[in-house]
Amino acid sequence: MPINVSFLVRNLPLFYEGAVVTIELSVLTIVIVMVWGLVIVTGRVSRLRLWRLLAGGYIQLVRNTPVLVQMYFIYFGLAMAGFGLSGFASGLLALSLQNGGYVAEIYRAGFESISMKQIEGAKALGMTRWSLLWLVVLPQAFVRVIPPLGNQLILIIKDTSLVSAIAVGELTQTGKLLSERTAATYEIFFTLAVFYLVMTSIVGGMVRLYERRFAIAH
């Protein structure tokens, strides 16, 4: 199939606009999720029963319902209840809620993989709870968290395409609108696929780089 280059050039500004929204949404979601996940994980390991139950219930809820339905609930439901959020804000909120649950579980797995012996050793050295957390637990947890976290970030970037269903003009939406008006659908989806592949490859590449550096350090 010959690629219609002039079509791509003509519509470059449109693709660019869409891509910017996709990047904004991805970056914002990623930042929020990484922090929100930390908040939730404190609940998972908390001694407070209520906080623990809430965090556990929250994770189950978001992991077992589709992010698209959450988006509709927020976008259409809240609007009807008088708290109308923009499509972008609804998408951001739904993506953050959903992925925060996954990221919290990734953090938890990272914490739990650290052996109790080391923690006891550090305690024996007279470390306080905080220095124990900062100097012993977190650095190691970080190393184990990076690869699965990277995978989750890639899924987040891909999931930003779902906000096209609530009329946010990001890249997939742009592609969809163009496809309905032109016959150059092959070019459109080629462009989309390449864009997402580049975005996800950047995250994947960063993770691999990190892993390699860590492997050398050991």
Partner: peptide, 23 residues
């Protein structure tokens, strides 16, 4: 694996819906 891991499911669904009919 690279393509499927890097491209959103929705984009692949659109591909099937919008692009394949043209071929």
């Amino acid at each position: 694996l690279y393509v499927v891991r890097g491209v959103p499911l929705l984009v692949l669904l659109f591909f099937m819906y919008f692009v394949l009919p043209y071929s």
